[in-house]
Computed example of a mutant assay.
Amino acid sequence: MEQKPPGANNQLLLMIMVVVACSVSGAGAQPSPGYYPSRRIRSMAFGEGYDNLWGAQHQTLSPDQTALTVWMDRSSGSGFKSKRSYRNGYFGASIKVPSGYTAGVNTAFYLSNNELYPGQHDEIDIELLGTVPGEPWTLQTNVYVHGTGDGAIIGREMRFHLWFDPTADFHHYAILWNPDHIVFLVDDVPVRRYPRAAHGHNFPDRQMWAYGSIWDASDWATDGGRFKSDYRYQPFVSRYTDLKIAGCEAAAPASCRPVQSSPSGDTGGLSAQQNAAMSWAQQRSMVYYYCQDYSRNHANYPEC
């Protein structure tokens, strides 16, 4: 009798679930993750959770204070920051990005402690990278842990060509950061799970703030910097709404519980259905994964 390697049955089950999910939802349709954390957390007014950080002249709030419009032109971009810092949590926003020629434009939603630990900061990024007409927008996810401070910050990028048009409507992008893992979600579909390794050195565990911004990243954002921002097409306008924050603030008592990441109540794992949806997203849309980039020094990435 042929002996299967450890984990083979789990891998087979996951493959079956991916096939089933895709067949049920349609070949190109987004599968259900079976768990929707965005629906469990209430939306907040902008001023309840955030303050302007820079470029106030490039921001407008909706009359009900729930939607923020930011734009970038030749003079400036714009950014905002959460009022409080957190040691874990769910951070989400529905975002609509500009259409047309948007090369070099970076619409970001991220966590960072750069202002507290300059040169040695942690960061968890969702970045929507502009494009040229006819080419897809790229979603970049990234994790920095204790930046080196000498310009050689070690990034851990995973990029996707989105399976929808992010300029046509709002979609919900979220970071779920718990003590055991980080999950990046798009419309509640996990697209990436970044677990804490056994040694823990590759995982951000210091307090961070949530940020949003639009800025000129011409040096690298579109095809490695081949296409730059073209201000003949200004202003570049992005919109944020449905802002959500839930989790443990930095000063919360030890009894504060992280937001669960699966329907079972687990904070460090995903359900089989969530894993199947994540596999669908990665197999269909992932275009870059740092662990598969052998031009990099993998000694910097023990988790690979």
Rank of each mutant, 00 (worst) to 15 (best):
V145W: 09
D73C: 01
G47E: 09
T102Q: 11
G130R: 05
Y90I: 10
A8M: 05
T66F: 00
S261L: 04
R39Q: 14
K4C: 11
I95F: 13
T69N: 06
A27M: 14
T60V: 15
T267Y: 06
G268W: 01
G77T: 10
I182W: 08
M44R: 15
H58F: 04
L12W: 12
G265P: 02
V105Y: 03
Q30C: 14
R196L: 12
I153R: 13
Y50G: 04
C22N: 15
Y288T: 00
N10K: 13
S78N: 13
E249K: 06
V191W: 08
P258H: 08
N202L: 04
T102F: 10
W137V: 11
K81M: 08
D169M: 08
A246E: 15
C248M: 10
M44L: 15
P263W: 10
A252H: 07
D64W: 00
W54V: 06
Q292W: 11
D187A: 08
G151H: 10
P63N: 04
R40W: 09
M158W: 13
T222F: 09
Y110A: 03
G265I: 04
P195A: 14
S38K: 03
R296S: 01
Y288M: 00
E123M: 01
N300R: 07
E127H: 07
I153C: 06
S32H: 02
R206C: 05
N88K: 07
Y194C: 00
H199L: 10
S75M: 12
N10M: 10
